[in-house]
Simulated scan of single mutants.
Amino acid sequence: MQQGYAPVLCVLAVLGLEAAALGECELTRLLQDKLQYEMRLQYMKHYFPINYTVQVQYEEVLRPSNITRLRNGTVSEAALRYLWFHVSSQAVLRIHEVLPEKHPSWKYTQELCQLFDALGEEYSKYRQTDVETVVADLVKLIYSAGAESRSKAVRPKALLDNCLKVMRMLYGGPCRWEFT
């Protein structure tokens, strides 16, 4: 670690503030660039049939209102980022799985999957026992595609729209982004 960062990190730790790791900021910035409106429109709407939907679990749709409600329930920012990562990576994977390799959106979703894989390395240090129970339970539901979970038909673009909106809510401040 560079010497210039040590005092800043100490101050943040003392104040109890949670900051996104530098790796998270860089990777989510790359994701933000990949999720530009024009790209989402082209790859997730224009290249799909009209009204095309993907079946996802109800818990795999994460909207800004969900984040606001969880924040009001005093869920930590780190836990919210952990939840966003798992929900969004699963949503991108669901979209990617329905595409044949020759589909014009296949490479785009493959690149998104690779960025989420790299981000997963950042989150590999978290354990579900380290985050609030409500978030750990939601993450378990996402990966337990059992019969008891409810499914929902969602447009691919809507999934990525939510992914970007929530990502900006969670990372825009700590990572000091300029929104494009």
Rank of each mutant, 00 (worst) to 15 (best):
C175E: 11
L115R: 10
Y47T: 03
T53R: 09
H46D: 05
L115W: 03
E101L: 08
H86A: 10
K102F: 13
R168Y: 09
M167H: 00
Q128T: 07
E59N: 14
L70D: 03
L99S: 08
L17M: 12
Q2D: 15
G4K: 14
S89A: 09
I95P: 00
L22R: 14
K102R: 12
P7W: 02
H46W: 12
Y43D: 01
S149W: 07
G4E: 13
I67D: 01
R71T: 05
H103D: 12
G146R: 11
L41M: 05
W84Y: 08
P156R: 10
V54A: 10
V56D: 02
L138A: 10
G23R: 06
D33I: 12
H46C: 02
K140E: 10
M167Q: 08
E24L: 09
L115S: 01
F116V: 02
S144G: 13
Y143S: 07
E122L: 06
A13T: 04
H96G: 04
R71L: 10
T74Q: 11
L93F: 10
T74C: 09
V154A: 05
L12F: 06
S88N: 12
G146I: 01
Q36L: 12
H103G: 09
R40L: 15
E132V: 12
L17H: 08
P49H: 12
E132T: 08
V139P: 02
A136K: 11
E101D: 06
Q55G: 00
L41S: 04
Q32E: 13
I67M: 01
V139I: 15
S151A: 09
E18C: 09
R40T: 07
R150W: 14
S89L: 00
Y171H: 06
P156H: 12
R150G: 13
V139D: 05
E97P: 00
R71Y: 04
T133H: 14
N162C: 15
M167C: 04
A21W: 02
A19I: 02
K102W: 10
Y126D: 13
H96M: 05
P156G: 11
R69E: 13
S151F: 14
V98E: 09
E18A: 10
V87R: 03
D117G: 08
F48I: 06
P64V: 15
G172Y: 11
L62R: 07
T180V: 07
L112Q: 08
R127E: 11
D137G: 02
L15C: 13
L141V: 04
H86K: 14
S76F: 03
A118Y: 00
L159D: 01
I95K: 04
S65A: 15
G146F: 04
R71K: 13
Y171C: 12
S89H: 08
Y43M: 10
A79C: 12
V134M: 11
L119N: 07
I95S: 05
V8S: 00
Y126Q: 14
A158Y: 04
R63N: 02
M1L: 14
S124C: 06
G146M: 03
V139H: 07
C163G: 00
Q57Y: 02
A91P: 03
A19Y: 06
V87M: 03
N66R: 09
V54G: 06
V87P: 01
Q2G: 03
V87E: 00
Y58W: 09
Y43T: 01
R29D: 02
K157Y: 09
T109R: 05
C163V: 07
V98R: 13
H103T: 11
N51L: 10
R168D: 06
E59C: 12
M167S: 06
I95Q: 02
T133N: 11
A158H: 05
